[in-house]
Design a protein around this nucleic acid. Structure first.
Lengths: 178, 178
DNA sequence: TTTTCCATGTAACTCGTTACATGATTTC
DNA sequence: GAAATCATGTAACGAGTTACATGGAAAA
């Protein structure tokens, strides 16, 4: 409830511009795949909920004979909620529980050679993710400075993935010595 | 489905030792709060499911006049499933989408002074988490080498949190220059 | 004697996922 | 003429959360 990321995302996108669900889904799928896993059906349902809560309101638009669009925009209370969520997210660090720790806790259940192979695979994939992120171009005001925040998020992901890889290699070395 | 962390956790704990639900919940709450958010009711429900799937089986134990215990242990297919999940988890890096990136994407919606204050708060909390983790003692075989993996997981969390803090401070400096 | 511990759960709810449905329209 | 695009959703299911229920035993 308190730190719902999907709500922040949708309200934030609608704060930038009135949009309909299909448009939001396209944008998320094309540009924000690195930051969220929000699926289409989930987004439509979330928009319904936000409307019922009075955070957004819809107007219907028709273009020719195509399916009608429900174009959403923030209400006053939606804007307030957006800012509240944004402040909360900015002020809070990554919550506990990194997913990748779970396997580590039981790694002594496997022969250490296999463990090293598996962690080697993990390192390779991490390296791939890092290379991919490094290829992401930065937006020097490309879309009216609106995307500056995305650059920041990318640079943070890079920093975390690189730290993870560095740690992993060091851990593998330690394990190999036993 | 494929990468269900709760299942790995429960199967892993039961692989170490036959236990009943209360016991698992106590152990998780006391020792694993840093690695999972699994709640008690969720764990009981998960144990039911695992039993229905044939991954664990229960025997009932009674001690005096106390509530009966359902003591669970792994079945053969439960062990197989545990190893499969463990291999999967060890071989895969942290999945995309760090939670803390979301707020960053919209940070230009706030006056930069407030943004800096909020990020400062985030930095302070990160520092606190790091200090707390540094105080965690390592288990030099304390419980029969069974907890060696936990030390690894702690050291990984530390590495990631420190990288996050380093990045944050650098980002705040960049933001302050504008 | 009141609180905490032991041990298990249920009920109501929210959220997310996958797979499918619909029907026109533009593109190949 | 077939396929992808536009635009919205529904249905069935799985899993998580909070709050509550129960009832004896040990501890304060």
């Amino acid at each position: 409830m308190t730190t719902d990321p999907n709500t922040l995302l949708l309200l934030g996108l609608l704060k930038g511009q009135r949009q309909h669900g299909y448009q939001l889904n396209e944008f998320i799928e094309r540009n924000l795949g690195r930051f969220t896993t929000l699926k289409k059906a989930t987004a439509y349902a979330a928009l319904d909920r936000l409307e019922k809560k009075g955070l957004i309101e819809a107007s219907t638009e028709q273009e020719g004979n195509r399916p009608a669009r429900r174009v959403y925009g923030l209400t006053a209370s939606g804007e307030a909620q957006f800012f509240a969520l944004l402040r909360e997210h900015l002020a809070q660090p990554e919550p506990v529980a990194f997913y990748g720790d779970l396997g580590l806790m039981f790694l002594n259940q496997l022969p250490s050679e296999e463990t090293l192979n598996l962690l080697g695979e993990r390192a390779a994939q991490l390296g791939g993710q890092i290379a991919e992120l490094e290829r992401v171009p930065t937006h020097e005001g490309a879309l009216g400075r609106g995307l500056f925040g995305v650059d920041l998020a990318v640079s943070r992901q890079l920093a975390l993935l690189q730290a993870d890889l560095t740690w992993l290699i060091q851990a593998m070395n330690r394990l190999a010595q036993v």
